[in-house]
Design a protein around this nucleic acid. Structure first.
Lengths: 107, 107
DNA sequence: TCGCTATATTGCAATATTACGATATACTTA
DNA sequence: TAAGTATATCGTAATATTGCAATATAGCGA
């Protein structure tokens, strides 16, 4: 008990749910929104922008990177992060499929 | 420590992340996919379909309902669940906004 | 009413997540 | 090389999530 029973679900389902899970935290949504509106990517700006400690932000960035939602490229002493639109499109495609397949006589 | 610091984020961000979080579990994705492909809605079919105990499925259904992702209508002794396309569109809109606002010179 | 079926709730053990201080790593510049 | 800046990792306490047995609730037909 206590553990998610990932073994019993398909890889596709597990991949999708991991991707959604990565979006499922306010700090990570805030990071994504900041990445969206900034001219330049970022780095330590997030630490100034968000009311969270640096290790906490670093941890959330890591999770977003592991999920493939953001990419980071080293630029001297700092790291420039940006959104990975391909991953975002995967979720988009899933949500779109829910809409098109829907049976209109249901409920 | 240990608690998500929701207070420091806007309501919009918290709402969005809660919605994503509800999608962030393989059992809930499986329920959503099943709801998508079934002619009729469901009820106890999920218990037969998924390798999880009835209370566990009931709990996941509750979370999906709380998030507004599914709706249930009582039909005699059973309950007919279906997807709420409006909520799904909210996520869709967010993901779409990420794509359109993106700065192409970044990273 | 009694038993049956469908679903929800409770309680709890196992595990995962969150946040952060302390510390490590690594590049840069004086 | 030493000091400074940027970021990552470790360790850990607090809290949340997951899964399920046991049990409760509720409609239905005999």
């Amino acid at each position: 008990m206590g553990t998610t029973k990932s073994e019993v679900f398909s890889e596709e389902i597990n991949d999708l749910s991991s991707l959604f899970k990565a979006f499922g935290h306010p700090a990570r949504i805030a990071i994504i929104q900041f990445l969206r509106t900034q001219e330049k990517c970022i780095c330590t700006d997030l630490v100034k922008e968000l009311p969270l400690a640096q290790p906490t932000i670093s941890q959330h960035l890591k999770e977003l990177k592991n999920a493939g939602i953001i990419q980071g490229s080293v630029s001297g002493t700092s790291i420039c992060y940006c959104l990975n639109l391909e991953k975002i499109s995967e979720l988009d495609a899933f949500l779109a499929s829910l809409k098109y397949d829907q049976n209109p006589t249901c409920c």
